[in-house]
Design a protein around this nucleic acid. Structure first.
Lengths: 111, 111
DNA sequence: CATTTGTGACTGCTATATCGGTCAATTAAA
DNA sequence: TTTAATTGACCGATATAGCAGTCACAAATG
């Protein structure tokens, strides 16, 4: 074994807690049990529990599905607004050089 | 093998594409190469590539780390604003009954 | 009250995500 | 143009996430 212990930044941990809490809140507001929602998503109840706890090692796809089916909006209020936003990002990306060079010798990462 | 083919809703797929695109955009704007960012996160470059493509089967913790280190804000503009938001969610959760009963026989999920 | 349902916390098995590496093609800089 | 770096696309090995199941306890109903 490699004892692959990974660390996550505070922002990440808090964002995960937030995400899980929002899903749990939305689920309860819609009066769904853990079994209900997990079945609807097509995952085990134990996995949903990890999601609501904000566990970092869960497929992001499952978390987003949980959020979606629980009614937590992702990025935008209306689901239909997502496609245009993606286009905007792609447009911006197209303006940048395909390959990036010479990262600034010092990059600030202050958390 | 179980041929465990999972499907994801359109909203989830688009949200993942969005997330990945934002990370890629932010990375380039900061003139970081894939190698730079992945090293900073502590993951393989191949994994970062999956993240930027919006692949669903990636640890959400890694995606959030990538977003954080690339400079993509999660949920809020300032990182410091996250803790209070979490408290708000917890407060709301405390007001609800611990266990939920009788899910409405029909729950709408229209995507 | 009794009964039914939801939740929390485990556990072993198995499919698989991640790693670390390679190679070719592109692209930016000198 | 030449050169060095970035990117895209692979692949085998292995640590592990998710599943399915169980059990005890909590807590809503009637």
């Amino acid at each position: 074994m490699k004892t692959h212990t990974r660390t996550y930044s505070r922002v990440t941990r808090e964002a995960l807690t937030m995400m899980g809490g929002l899903i749990r809140l939305a689920r309860k507001q819609r009066k769904m049990s853990e079994a209900d929602l997990s079945a609807r998503i097509g995952i085990a109840r134990s996995t949903l529990q990890l999601i609501e706890k904000g566990h970092p090692k869960v497929e992001i796809g499952l978390v987003f599905e949980a959020a979606t089916l629980a009614g937590v909006p992702l990025f935008v209020d209306e689901p239909s607004r997502l496609a245009p936003e993606i286009s905007r990002v792609n447009d911006k990306l197209a303006l940048l050089p395909q390959a990036v060079r010479r990262p600034r010798s010092e990059v600030k990462d202050d958390f």
